[in-house]
Lab assay of single mutants.
Amino acid sequence: MQYKLVINGKTLKGETTTKAVDAETAEKAFKQYANDNGVDGVWTYDDATKTFTVTE
Rank of each mutant, 00 (worst) to 15 (best):
M1F: 14
M1Q: 14
M1E: 14
M1H: 14
M1W: 15
M1Y: 11
M1C: 08
Q2W: 14
Q2L: 15
Q2C: 10
Q2T: 15
Q2G: 06
Y3Q: 00
Y3T: 00
Y3L: 01
K4G: 04
K4R: 14
K4M: 08
K4A: 05
K4N: 08
L5A: 02
L5K: 00
L5G: 01
V6D: 04
V6F: 07
I7D: 01
I7M: 08
I7F: 08
I7R: 01
N8R: 11
N8I: 15
N8G: 05
G9K: 05
G9A: 10
G9D: 03
G9F: 14
K10M: 14
T11M: 09
T11N: 14
T11L: 13
T11I: 11
T11V: 12
L12Y: 15
L12G: 10
K13V: 08
K13D: 06
K13S: 13
K13M: 11
G14C: 11
G14L: 15
G14V: 15
E15F: 07
E15D: 05
E15T: 10
E15S: 08
E15Q: 07
E15P: 04
E15A: 06
T16F: 15
T16G: 04
T16N: 06
T16D: 03
T16V: 15
T17I: 10
T17Q: 10
T17D: 06
T17M: 12
T18F: 12
T18H: 08
T18S: 05
T18E: 05
K19N: 13
K19Q: 13
K19F: 15
K19S: 13
K19E: 14
A20S: 06
V21C: 07
V21F: 13
D22H: 05
D22G: 04
A23V: 12
E24R: 10
E24P: 12
E24D: 12
T25E: 13
T25Y: 07
T25V: 08
T25Q: 13
T25G: 09
E27G: 10
E27K: 12
E27F: 14
E27W: 14
K28H: 12
K28N: 11
A29Q: 12
A29C: 08
A29T: 14
F30S: 00
F30T: 00
F30G: 00
F30L: 06
F30C: 02
F30V: 03
K31Y: 06
Q32A: 11
Q32H: 08
Q32W: 06
Q32Y: 05
Y33G: 01
Y33A: 03
A34G: 03
A34W: 03
A34I: 10
N35R: 14
N35T: 13
N37R: 15
N37P: 01
N37V: 14
N37S: 09
N37K: 15
N37T: 07
G38L: 08
G38R: 06
G38A: 06
V39L: 11
V39D: 01
V39W: 08
V39E: 02
D40P: 04
D40S: 12
G41R: 01
G41L: 02
V42M: 11
V42C: 08
W43T: 01
W43V: 02
W43Q: 01
W43G: 00
T44M: 09
T44P: 00
T44I: 09
T44N: 09
Y45D: 00
Y45E: 00
Y45Q: 01
Y45A: 01
D46A: 04
D47Y: 08
D47F: 09
A48Q: 07
A48S: 12
A48T: 14
T49L: 09
T49G: 06
T49Y: 04
T49N: 09
T49Q: 07
K50S: 06
K50F: 11
T51D: 01
T51R: 03
T51M: 04
F52H: 02
F52D: 00
F52Q: 00
T53I: 07
T53S: 06
T53G: 03
V54W: 02
V54E: 00
T55Y: 09
T55Q: 06
E56I: 09
E56Q: 07
E56W: 11
